[in-house]
Simulated scan of single mutants.
Amino acid sequence: MADKENKTPFYKRWWFWLIIAIILLFALFGGGDDEDPVEEENATEEIQDDGTDTTDETADNKQGTNDNAGEEAEAEEPATRDNSNAEETTLNAGRFIVGEDIPVGRYVITGDGMGNLFVYDENGLPEVNEILDNTGDTGVTSITTNLEAGQEIEISGLNSVVFKPAETSLSNTLSAGSWEVGLDIEPGRYNVTAPSGMGNFFIYNEMGLPSTNEILDASGELGVKQLTITLEEGQEIQISGLNEVDFESR
């Protein structure tokens, strides 16, 4: 009997198949556990890759936003006038044509003594009608206005009138002359007063129609002492007979 068992092939013995079964069970269950960390590692790498890409895209978007902000800041530089054609000119009493006797431009006009200054448009209508008085007692000490081709200047009672090219800057104090909202004063809501004297105060819209027409009087006897207004970009302000008008932001 012992010789028969020794001659039986090993693959027909019970312990051989037990070993095979154990190996198969280990392969089925133990191998699956080995693969899970690899899959988790790959998933982690994918998440990290996605996160890195997202960060790069966010940084690029922020950089693009900053660049656009810089371009907008450059585009929002304060507006100004081209007054390069204006030249300082002195005229005596008489009549003169803009574009012939004096270049087109924006000027600050002052006189030696006291007299009248008129500027007429091409239809002969007066756009400027002021008494220039270097003392400021009877008239205004200066007028700031635009002179356009074809207009006629009339000077009376003055030996000399000086026309100096005007510089454009924002201010809350304006004198006699014409001014544009956005170039000479910021848009906004203001209380308007004149510290002394009496004169006319007009505001024209972009269509050239008057939206405000008041007499400002520091004493309040013949006009208003204070006016509350809202100034909008592009509107024109005209001041006549007053050396100074103050705009206090509300």
Rank of each mutant, 00 (worst) to 15 (best):
T44M: 13
L242E: 02
A21M: 15
W179I: 01
N66C: 10
T54K: 12
E45K: 15
S160T: 14
E57Y: 06
L222T: 03
N200M: 11
I215H: 00
S178L: 08
T228Y: 01
D3K: 11
E167W: 05
D246H: 11
T110I: 08
Y107N: 01
T228C: 01
D101M: 00
G115H: 04
M207Q: 15
A194Y: 02
G31A: 15
A27N: 01
V140D: 01
L242C: 10
W14P: 05
V98W: 02
R95S: 14
R106H: 03
T173W: 03
D246G: 11
G234N: 07
L216S: 05
F26Y: 07
R106M: 07
Q238L: 07
F29E: 13
N83L: 09
T89Q: 01
P9N: 08
A79I: 02
G124K: 02
Q226R: 09
S160V: 07
W14I: 14
I143E: 00
S142K: 04
N205T: 13
G241Y: 08
P165C: 02
D36Q: 14
F163M: 06
G223A: 00
S196H: 08
E130W: 05
E130Q: 13
Y11D: 13
L209Q: 13
T212L: 02
D53W: 11
I153P: 01
F96R: 06
E57A: 09
I215R: 00
K7G: 06
A75C: 09
E248H: 02
E40Q: 14
I22E: 02
I237F: 05
L227A: 04
D101A: 02
G177I: 01
S84W: 01
K4F: 14
A59Q: 05
D34A: 14
L158S: 09
E214T: 13
K4S: 14
G234L: 08
I23P: 04
T90M: 05
D53C: 11
L125R: 09
Q235S: 05
I22R: 03
V245F: 04
A149K: 11
V192Y: 02
N159L: 06
N61G: 06
P78A: 15
E76V: 05
V140M: 00
W15M: 12
A79V: 01
Q63S: 14
K225E: 09
N129F: 12
V108N: 13
D49F: 13
P187C: 04
L24V: 15
T193E: 07
P187L: 04
D3H: 15
K12D: 09
L24I: 14
N191W: 07
T80C: 04
W17M: 03
E100Q: 08
G208F: 02
D60L: 10
A75R: 06
E186W: 06
D217I: 03
G234P: 05
E127I: 15
N123C: 09
F163N: 04
E152V: 02
N66D: 14
Q238G: 03
W15R: 12
D49P: 07
S156F: 10
S169P: 04
D82W: 08
L91E: 06
E236K: 13
A69E: 15
Q226T: 15
Y107M: 10
S178M: 08
G30T: 04
G241H: 03
